[in-house]
Amino acid sequence: MKQFIFILATCFAMNSYAQTRSLGGFFPEASLSYKISEKYSVTHKVESQHFVYNDQTLDDKFDYNHSLTDLQTFVGRRLSPFIKVDIGYQYRIEEGENTHRPIQQVSILQRSSMFRIGHRIRTDQTFFKNEKFLFRARYRLKSQIPLNGVSLDPGENYLAFSNEIIYMTQDGDDDIENRLAGALGFYIDDKNKFEVGLDYRTDDYLVDNRFRNRLWFKVGYYKSL
């Protein structure tokens, strides 16, 4: 709650005296996970951002623009039924420069009788040709709430809410990003899940006159073998 008020207050403050940038678009993502042994699993993920609105352009603000596409692969080890650690690598295809990013994460599952919560702690490092590397530390909390009964069964739907706070630093400059998302999930079965929702991202909190809002219409497919 405190954090929410902080974000709201920051948004308000930024909006009132500084220039705000607003963008929006379409954000499909898909992941494929499979086990390679009892403890180890591999996940491949592809995600892509496509802007359809940008208030910074002088002419037509509604214009299609491919922003970026990420290709990720993770190798995970399950430490217990509730804790999993992953190391991953991302190759980002983006106009200007494609980047490399190693990722480390710990995910913790918390169950209650009515819903479940996934905590994800992640660090990543992005490497550029002519700039110093960018370090980020992130924490995401995502809840999954069944809409029919207390447990999620095949053919039922669920709601997913998440918030992620990202701290980043590069060459002495630091910044904060926040990602708030809500989605309707379709639990086809345990190996196939589909989520449709909105992902609202705000960043450049600590940079003068650069505060940025991005609203994504997101669709995600989670497949496991």
Partner: peptide, 10 residues
Amino acid sequence: NIKATDNLDY
């Protein structure tokens, strides 16, 4: 059996 966590982890 704990349900898959792929949508909570990635």
